[in-house]
Amino acid sequence: MSVRAIVAKPWVWSYVAAFAVWLATIAFTGGQGAGGVLTAALTFGTFFALVAIGQMFVITLGPGNVDLSIPATMTLAGTIAMKAMAESDAMIPVGLGLALLTGLCVGILNFGLILLLRIPPIIATLSSSFIVQSTAIWWNRGLRIKPPPALGDFATTNVMGVPVLAVLVIIIAAVMHVVLARTVFGRSVTAIGQNQRAAWLAGVKVERIRFLTYVLCALFSSLCGFLLASFSGGAALNMGQEYLLTSIAVVVIGGTSVAGGFGNVPGLWGASLFLFLLVTMLNTYGLGAGPRLILTGAIIILVIVAASYRRQRE
Protein backbone atom coordinates (compact mmCIF):
# COMPACT_ATOMS: atom_id res chain seq x y z
CA MET A 1 0.00 0.00 0.00
CA SER A 2 1.50 3.32 -1.06
CA VAL A 3 1.66 6.34 1.22
CA ARG A 4 -1.06 7.94 -0.85
CA ALA A 5 -3.38 5.02 -0.39
CA ILE A 6 -2.87 5.18 3.38
CA VAL A 7 -3.46 8.92 3.51
CA ALA A 8 -6.68 8.46 1.54
CA LYS A 9 -8.15 6.20 4.23
CA PRO A 10 -10.74 8.16 6.20
CA TRP A 11 -9.60 6.64 9.50
CA VAL A 12 -6.03 7.93 9.25
CA TRP A 13 -7.13 11.37 10.36
CA SER A 14 -8.28 10.26 13.78
CA TYR A 15 -4.77 8.93 14.48
CA VAL A 16 -3.15 12.06 13.07
CA ALA A 17 -5.39 14.15 15.32
CA ALA A 18 -4.71 11.98 18.37
CA PHE A 19 -0.96 12.20 17.81
CA ALA A 20 -1.08 15.98 17.30
CA VAL A 21 -3.08 16.50 20.48
CA TRP A 22 -0.67 14.28 22.43
CA LEU A 23 2.32 16.26 21.10
CA ALA A 24 0.60 19.53 22.03
CA THR A 25 0.01 18.23 25.55
CA ILE A 26 3.56 17.11 26.24
CA ALA A 27 4.96 20.24 24.58
CA PHE A 28 3.06 22.22 27.22
CA THR A 29 4.35 20.12 30.12
CA GLY A 30 7.88 20.02 28.71
CA GLY A 31 7.83 16.28 28.16
CA GLN A 32 6.66 15.41 31.65
CA GLY A 33 4.08 12.63 31.81
CA ALA A 34 4.32 11.73 28.12
CA GLY A 35 4.06 8.00 28.83
CA GLY A 36 1.57 8.37 31.67
CA VAL A 37 -0.85 10.29 29.47
CA LEU A 38 -0.65 7.58 26.81
CA THR A 39 -1.33 4.86 29.36
CA ALA A 40 -4.35 6.77 30.63
CA ALA A 41 -5.58 7.30 27.06
CA LEU A 42 -5.28 3.57 26.33
CA THR A 43 -7.04 2.73 29.59
CA PHE A 44 -10.08 4.91 29.02
CA GLY A 45 -10.02 4.68 25.23
CA THR A 46 -10.65 0.96 25.74
CA PHE A 47 -14.16 1.61 27.04
CA PHE A 48 -14.94 4.20 24.35
CA ALA A 49 -13.74 1.85 21.59
CA LEU A 50 -15.71 -1.10 22.92
CA VAL A 51 -19.12 0.60 22.81
CA ALA A 52 -18.18 2.37 19.57
CA ILE A 53 -17.66 -0.96 17.76
CA GLY A 54 -21.30 -1.86 18.38
CA GLN A 55 -22.54 1.64 17.57
CA MET A 56 -20.49 1.65 14.34
CA PHE A 57 -22.22 -1.52 13.09
CA VAL A 58 -25.64 -0.03 13.93
CA ILE A 59 -24.89 3.32 12.27
CA THR A 60 -23.52 1.55 9.18
CA LEU A 61 -26.98 -0.03 8.74
CA GLY A 62 -28.07 3.26 7.24
CA PRO A 63 -30.04 6.43 7.97
CA GLY A 64 -32.08 6.39 11.15
CA ASN A 65 -30.19 3.52 12.73
CA VAL A 66 -28.59 4.44 16.05
CA ASP A 67 -28.61 2.82 19.48
CA LEU A 68 -29.43 5.25 22.29
CA SER A 69 -29.75 2.55 24.93
CA ILE A 70 -25.97 2.09 25.36
CA PRO A 71 -25.63 3.94 28.72
CA ALA A 72 -28.63 2.18 30.25
CA THR A 73 -27.45 -1.22 29.04
CA MET A 74 -23.99 -0.61 30.50
CA THR A 75 -25.48 0.39 33.85
CA LEU A 76 -27.86 -2.55 34.05
CA ALA A 77 -25.26 -5.12 32.97
CA GLY A 78 -22.68 -3.75 35.42
CA THR A 79 -25.23 -3.60 38.23
CA ILE A 80 -26.57 -7.12 37.73
CA ALA A 81 -23.10 -8.64 37.34
CA MET A 82 -21.61 -6.94 40.43
CA LYS A 83 -24.58 -7.91 42.56
CA ALA A 84 -24.52 -11.53 41.37
CA MET A 85 -20.77 -11.91 41.95
CA ALA A 86 -20.96 -10.40 45.45
CA GLU A 87 -17.17 -9.97 45.56
CA SER A 88 -16.54 -13.69 45.07
CA ASP A 89 -13.83 -14.71 42.59
CA ALA A 90 -15.56 -18.02 41.93
CA MET A 91 -18.62 -16.22 40.60
CA ILE A 92 -16.77 -14.23 37.89
CA PRO A 93 -17.93 -16.48 34.98
CA VAL A 94 -21.51 -16.24 36.27
CA GLY A 95 -21.25 -12.45 36.46
CA LEU A 96 -19.85 -12.21 32.96
CA GLY A 97 -22.54 -14.57 31.69
CA LEU A 98 -25.30 -12.54 33.34
CA ALA A 99 -23.89 -9.29 31.94
CA LEU A 100 -23.89 -10.71 28.41
CA LEU A 101 -27.36 -12.18 28.94
CA THR A 102 -28.54 -8.71 29.94
CA GLY A 103 -27.10 -7.36 26.70
CA LEU A 104 -28.81 -10.12 24.73
CA CYS A 105 -32.18 -9.31 26.30
CA VAL A 106 -31.82 -5.56 25.68
CA GLY A 107 -30.82 -6.23 22.07
CA ILE A 108 -33.86 -8.43 21.55
CA LEU A 109 -36.08 -5.83 23.25
CA ASN A 110 -34.69 -3.06 21.04
CA PHE A 111 -35.21 -4.94 17.82
CA GLY A 112 -38.58 -6.23 18.97
CA LEU A 113 -39.77 -2.64 19.34
CA ILE A 114 -38.28 -1.70 15.97
CA LEU A 115 -39.64 -4.64 13.98
CA LEU A 116 -42.91 -5.66 15.64
CA LEU A 117 -44.17 -2.24 16.67
CA ARG A 118 -42.56 -0.47 13.67
CA ILE A 119 -41.06 2.22 15.89
CA PRO A 120 -38.09 4.16 14.41
CA PRO A 121 -34.84 2.90 16.02
CA ILE A 122 -34.00 6.25 17.58
CA ILE A 123 -37.32 6.26 19.50
CA ALA A 124 -37.32 2.52 20.17
CA THR A 125 -33.86 2.49 21.75
CA LEU A 126 -34.58 5.71 23.65
CA SER A 127 -37.72 4.25 25.20
CA SER A 128 -36.10 0.90 25.94
CA SER A 129 -33.28 2.79 27.67
CA PHE A 130 -35.84 4.23 30.12
CA ILE A 131 -37.07 0.73 30.89
CA VAL A 132 -33.54 -0.61 31.25
CA GLN A 133 -32.32 2.30 33.39
CA SER A 134 -35.35 2.04 35.66
CA THR A 135 -34.72 -1.68 36.03
CA ALA A 136 -31.17 -0.89 37.14
CA ILE A 137 -32.46 1.63 39.70
CA TRP A 138 -35.03 -0.85 40.95
CA TRP A 139 -32.52 -3.71 41.09
CA ASN A 140 -30.25 -2.20 43.70
CA ARG A 141 -30.92 1.51 44.21
CA GLY A 142 -27.47 2.70 43.27
CA LEU A 143 -25.62 0.42 45.63
CA ARG A 144 -21.93 0.23 44.74
CA ILE A 145 -20.79 -3.37 45.12
CA LYS A 146 -17.09 -3.89 44.53
CA PRO A 147 -15.93 -6.32 41.86
CA PRO A 148 -14.32 -9.59 42.97
CA PRO A 149 -10.64 -8.92 43.80
CA ALA A 150 -9.27 -11.05 40.93
CA LEU A 151 -11.48 -9.28 38.41
CA GLY A 152 -10.65 -5.83 39.79
CA ASP A 153 -6.94 -6.62 39.58
CA PHE A 154 -7.28 -7.95 36.05
CA ALA A 155 -9.16 -4.84 34.91
CA THR A 156 -6.53 -2.47 36.31
CA THR A 157 -3.37 -4.37 35.37
CA ASN A 158 -0.78 -2.66 33.16
CA VAL A 159 2.11 -4.47 31.51
CA MET A 160 4.89 -2.02 30.67
CA GLY A 161 2.40 0.83 30.63
CA VAL A 162 -0.07 -1.02 28.42
CA PRO A 163 -3.36 -1.93 30.11
CA VAL A 164 -4.35 -5.59 29.69
CA LEU A 165 -7.91 -4.53 28.91
CA ALA A 166 -6.67 -2.37 26.04
CA VAL A 167 -4.88 -5.37 24.52
CA LEU A 168 -8.08 -7.39 24.86
CA VAL A 169 -10.16 -4.73 23.14
CA ILE A 170 -7.55 -4.25 20.40
CA ILE A 171 -7.90 -7.97 19.67
CA ILE A 172 -11.70 -7.67 19.71
CA ALA A 173 -11.43 -4.71 17.33
CA ALA A 174 -9.16 -6.70 14.99
CA VAL A 175 -11.67 -9.55 14.93
CA MET A 176 -14.56 -7.16 14.30
CA HIS A 177 -12.57 -5.56 11.48
CA VAL A 178 -12.39 -8.94 9.77
CA VAL A 179 -16.09 -9.51 10.52
CA LEU A 180 -17.02 -6.21 8.88
CA ALA A 181 -14.73 -6.48 5.89
CA ARG A 182 -14.63 -10.20 5.12
CA THR A 183 -17.73 -12.02 6.36
CA VAL A 184 -21.18 -12.31 4.82
CA PHE A 185 -22.63 -10.65 7.92
CA GLY A 186 -20.31 -7.64 7.69
CA ARG A 187 -20.78 -7.23 3.94
CA SER A 188 -24.55 -7.49 4.45
CA VAL A 189 -24.51 -4.69 7.04
CA THR A 190 -22.60 -2.48 4.61
CA ALA A 191 -24.91 -3.44 1.73
CA ILE A 192 -28.03 -2.61 3.74
CA GLY A 193 -26.52 0.76 4.64
CA GLN A 194 -25.77 1.59 1.03
CA ASN A 195 -29.15 0.60 -0.32
CA GLN A 196 -31.55 -1.47 1.70
CA ARG A 197 -33.79 -2.36 -1.24
CA ALA A 198 -30.90 -3.35 -3.47
CA ALA A 199 -29.53 -5.48 -0.66
CA TRP A 200 -32.89 -7.17 -0.25
CA LEU A 201 -33.15 -7.83 -4.00
CA ALA A 202 -29.65 -9.29 -3.91
CA GLY A 203 -30.86 -11.83 -1.38
CA VAL A 204 -29.65 -10.27 1.88
CA LYS A 205 -31.94 -11.22 4.76
CA VAL A 206 -32.34 -7.60 5.84
CA GLU A 207 -34.32 -7.98 9.05
CA ARG A 208 -32.18 -10.87 10.27
CA ILE A 209 -29.01 -8.85 9.75
CA ARG A 210 -30.52 -5.82 11.49
CA PHE A 211 -31.59 -8.02 14.39
CA LEU A 212 -28.08 -9.44 14.75
CA THR A 213 -26.58 -5.96 14.57
CA TYR A 214 -28.72 -4.53 17.38
CA VAL A 215 -28.01 -7.58 19.53
CA LEU A 216 -24.29 -7.23 18.78
CA CYS A 217 -24.34 -3.58 19.85
CA ALA A 218 -26.16 -4.39 23.09
CA LEU A 219 -23.68 -7.22 23.79
CA PHE A 220 -20.72 -4.86 23.42
CA SER A 221 -22.46 -2.31 25.67
CA SER A 222 -23.04 -4.92 28.34
CA LEU A 223 -19.45 -6.17 28.11
CA CYS A 224 -18.27 -2.57 28.44
CA GLY A 225 -20.52 -2.04 31.48
CA PHE A 226 -19.11 -5.19 33.06
CA LEU A 227 -15.48 -4.18 32.44
CA LEU A 228 -15.99 -0.54 33.43
CA ALA A 229 -17.65 -1.56 36.69
CA SER A 230 -14.74 -3.95 37.36
CA PHE A 231 -12.22 -1.25 36.52
CA SER A 232 -13.70 1.60 38.54
CA GLY A 233 -14.48 -0.32 41.70
CA GLY A 234 -18.17 -1.06 41.20
CA ALA A 235 -21.23 -0.15 39.16
CA ALA A 236 -22.95 3.19 39.71
CA LEU A 237 -26.31 4.35 38.38
CA ASN A 238 -24.79 7.11 36.28
CA MET A 239 -21.78 5.15 35.05
CA GLY A 240 -22.84 5.04 31.38
CA GLN A 241 -23.89 8.67 31.17
CA GLU A 242 -21.17 10.06 28.95
CA TYR A 243 -20.95 7.02 26.68
CA LEU A 244 -23.98 7.88 24.55
CA LEU A 245 -22.64 10.93 22.76
CA THR A 246 -19.09 9.62 22.99
CA SER A 247 -20.02 6.42 21.17
CA ILE A 248 -21.54 8.39 18.29
CA ALA A 249 -18.69 10.93 18.22
CA VAL A 250 -16.08 8.15 18.13
CA VAL A 251 -17.84 6.46 15.22
CA VAL A 252 -18.05 9.67 13.20
CA ILE A 253 -14.55 10.95 13.98
CA GLY A 254 -13.23 7.48 13.17
CA GLY A 255 -14.25 8.02 9.57
CA THR A 256 -17.43 5.95 9.47
CA SER A 257 -20.12 7.54 7.32
CA VAL A 258 -22.93 8.78 9.53
CA ALA A 259 -25.31 8.20 6.61
CA GLY A 260 -24.44 4.50 6.75
CA GLY A 261 -22.97 2.09 4.25
CA PHE A 262 -19.30 2.84 4.95
CA GLY A 263 -18.00 1.60 8.28
CA ASN A 264 -14.49 1.02 9.53
CA VAL A 265 -13.02 -0.35 12.72
CA PRO A 266 -9.43 0.99 12.86
CA GLY A 267 -10.67 4.59 13.11
CA LEU A 268 -12.61 3.78 16.29
CA TRP A 269 -9.40 3.32 18.27
CA GLY A 270 -7.87 6.48 16.81
CA ALA A 271 -10.98 8.47 17.63
CA SER A 272 -11.22 7.03 21.17
CA LEU A 273 -7.63 8.01 21.93
CA PHE A 274 -8.18 11.39 20.30
CA LEU A 275 -11.27 12.21 22.38
CA PHE A 276 -9.56 11.31 25.64
CA LEU A 277 -6.34 13.13 24.77
CA LEU A 278 -8.28 16.20 23.65
CA VAL A 279 -9.96 16.57 27.04
CA THR A 280 -6.65 15.90 28.77
CA MET A 281 -4.88 18.53 26.66
CA LEU A 282 -7.49 21.20 27.40
CA ASN A 283 -7.42 20.25 31.11
CA THR A 284 -3.64 20.50 31.11
CA TYR A 285 -3.78 23.93 29.50
CA GLY A 286 -6.00 24.92 32.42
CA LEU A 287 -8.72 26.50 30.31
CA GLY A 288 -12.12 27.29 31.82
CA ALA A 289 -15.13 25.14 31.02
CA GLY A 290 -16.49 27.54 28.40
CA PRO A 291 -13.45 27.79 26.11
CA ARG A 292 -12.78 24.11 26.73
CA LEU A 293 -16.16 23.01 25.39
CA ILE A 294 -16.00 25.44 22.45
CA LEU A 295 -12.55 24.14 21.50
CA THR A 296 -13.71 20.53 21.87
CA GLY A 297 -16.55 21.20 19.45
CA ALA A 298 -14.37 23.14 17.00
CA ILE A 299 -11.61 20.52 16.92
CA ILE A 300 -14.08 17.67 16.43
CA ILE A 301 -15.65 19.53 13.47
CA LEU A 302 -12.18 20.10 12.02
CA VAL A 303 -11.25 16.40 12.18
CA ILE A 304 -14.55 15.29 10.67
CA VAL A 305 -14.22 17.82 7.84
CA ALA A 306 -10.64 16.66 7.15
CA ALA A 307 -11.74 13.00 7.05
CA SER A 308 -14.76 13.57 4.81
CA TYR A 309 -12.87 15.93 2.50
CA ARG A 310 -10.40 13.17 1.70
CA ARG A 311 -13.24 10.77 1.09
CA GLN A 312 -15.02 13.07 -1.34
CA ARG A 313 -11.90 13.59 -3.42
CA GLU A 314 -11.46 9.90 -3.96
Binding site: T25, I26, F28, T29, Q32, G33, A34, G35, G36, V37, T39, A40, A41, T43, F44, L228, S232, G233, A236, N238, M239, Q241, E242, F276, L277, V279, T280, N283, T284
Partner: peptide, 15 residues
Protein backbone atom coordinates in the same frame (compact mmCIF):
# COMPACT_ATOMS: atom_id res chain seq x y z
CA UNK B 1 -19.71 11.12 39.06
CA UNK B 2 -16.96 8.77 40.27
CA UNK B 3 -16.25 7.32 36.84
CA UNK B 4 -16.00 10.68 35.10
CA UNK B 5 -13.80 12.02 37.89
CA UNK B 6 -11.51 9.00 37.74
CA UNK B 7 -11.11 9.42 34.00
CA UNK B 8 -10.43 13.15 34.17
CA UNK B 9 -7.95 12.84 37.05
CA UNK B 10 -6.12 9.91 35.41
CA UNK B 11 -5.71 12.05 32.30
CA UNK B 12 -4.28 15.15 33.91
CA UNK B 13 -2.25 13.47 36.66
CA UNK B 14 0.83 12.50 34.60
CA UNK B 15 1.44 16.16 33.73
Amino acid sequence: AQDVAQQAVAGILPS
